[in-house]
């Protein structure tokens, strides 16, 4: 996987570079602001970009704006937005143009190297990676939605993992279930929430998120 990193804290930038290189990925460029990110992506055309939200000069949301711009110019490039806070406003902005090749994770998630690189790989491959924190905020906000009360606890877990953007195989691995069991749960959830069944993971994520009111 070829990756560009945009992160203003040098410590974190170096750590990420090392982590990805260690795992056999190629870090084409590691930059510190949004402008440089767009230039680096134009120059290297990577598979994915890891983008910090708060970067110079204003330290507000220039990373997010650069990420949206990136998605506009290069829809094929996966963009993983990376932040110390989770704002549902940011996630809905990110998902407005679809869930393909988009991710939004808390920086804390790098502690779990395998999960982090897995999420990045998913985004690079055109999938979705939403932080469990985003999903739990969405679940809290939509707990009164019709159908939610009828879900079993296990089905809620599966729903959350679907919303994070995981495939059936990923959900099965996370919950230590068989793929067949996951498929049954998914079918049951779609039935209870009366969502149209969809084959591709992306459309499934979008359907779930739309249901959760994102």
């Amino acid at each position: 996987m070829r990756v560009v990193i945009a992160e203003d804290a040098a410590m974190m930038r170096e750590g990420l570079t090392r982590l990805l290189t260690d795992r056999g990925h190629q870090v084409c460029a590691a930059v510190a602001d949004g402008e440089a990110l767009l230039e680096a992506v134009a120059a290297h055309r990577p598979d994915a970009a890891v983008v910090d939200i708060r970067m110079p000069p204003t330290h507000t949301d220039e990373g997010l704006r650069a990420a949206l711009e990136l998605k506009n110019r290069y829809p094929q490039t996966g963009v993983l937005v990376f932040s110390q806070y989770i704002e549902t406003r940011y996630s809905s902005q990110l998902l407005r143009r679809g869930a393909s090749g988009v991710g939004y994770l808390l920086k804390d998630r790098v502690a779990d190297v395998a999960e982090f690189t897995d999420a990045l790989a998913r985004v690079a491959a055109g999938g979705t990676a939403l932080d469990p924190e985003v999903v739990s905020q969405l679940l809290t906000a939509s707990h009164r939605a019709p159908g939610m009360a009828t879900l079993t606890p296990r089905e809620r877990e599966v729903l959350a993992l679907m919303a994070e953007g995981r495939s059936n195989a990923g959900i099965a691995a996370a919950l230590v279930l068989s793929t067949g069991a996951v498929e049954k749960h998914v079918a049951s959830i779609f039935g209870k929430l009366s969502l149209p069944p969809s084959e591709s993971d992306n459309r499934r994520v979008l359907a779930v998120l739309r249901y959760l009111g994102s």
Binding site: A9, M11, L19, Q84, V110, A111, D112, V113
Partner: peptide
Amino acid sequence: LHDGAQIRLATLAMHLGMARE
């Protein structure tokens, strides 16, 4: 906090995660 301790702790967690692997 954001630019200091928080980022240090996140990096620290990342290092520990890599070491654990």
